[in-house]
Amino acid sequence: MEATTADLIENENVWGGGNKPLKASYGKMMMWFFIVSDALTFSGFLVAYGFSRFKNIDSWPIADQVFYHFPFLHGIDAPMYYVALMTFVLIFSSVTMVLAVDAGHKMNKNKVAIYMLLTIIGGAVFVGSQAWEWKNFIKGEYGALETRGGQIIQFVSADSGKRVALESFAAQIPGDRVQQTSDTGIWFASESSLPSFTVAEVQQGFLANPDLRIKTEMIDAETGEKIILDRADSEAKITEAMHVVEGANLIRNEYGNRLFADFFFFITGFHGFHVFSGVVFNGIIFFNVLLGTYERRGHYEMIEKVGLYWHFVDLVWVFVFTFFYLV
């Protein structure tokens, strides 16, 4: 790293690398180049998400009906608050990062260390929140059925319009199939865990409950809400069901279009991985600060470089937040 610092090449001639037209060190420029290419990668992902969404514009899941959990508020509909909190945590850790860079310019070792530590804590809280969000998404709450055509049908109560969980109405039919494991299955093939109910149990329970209606994937162009079928149409629709879907995985999810969960896992996962590596980088730099590495080197430019990466992660989250939760 020593060869990249500004003072070492100060005296070299123009053709020997002494000319710095952009007034930025080698390391900082390379960090910026990486950020530009990474920004294009993320735009590729987000635009691909937009592509799938525009392709299925009349049946894409509505974010408020997917992300409504908040810690300690069970059963209360709280869309957006949790991700807003996560956004604040990340922006705040960005601020402590800038303060660390600023303290570095003033060669104040203790302040740099404190602000770096706060930044690391903020990043760790964010990754933890992300994990909680994923847990809720994967587990699901209500369950749904999938039709022959791959459409998700959900169940709502006719009076309140609120979603109803499968377990609250599904019938019990004895003689269930057991999960196939590799030692009992054909050609030693195992299968993923079976859903809690069979399609027949859900269908029977649905027919026995006249209060239930089916909520389809399709969005009413006038109101912007998902279309809820009347009882007669609901009874016809439920015969098309093929699978019970609980929660989300890479194949099906109870929220709607299959691609929705895939993009959610991929984009927030890729971003979460960036945050995680940012926390690791910050940790390495933090220990270097404590050891006095930059004090001896004479400048804290390393804080600035890792700070650029950290702000970039924040910047990407601002876009992920908009396109997954708001728009």
Binding site: S94, V98, G307, L308, H311, F312, D314, L315, V318
Partner: peptide, 8 residues
């Protein structure tokens, strides 16, 4: 503002 002020 993130790019201009935080990333200076």
């Amino acid at each position: 503002y993130i790019a201009w002020d935080f990333m200076h």
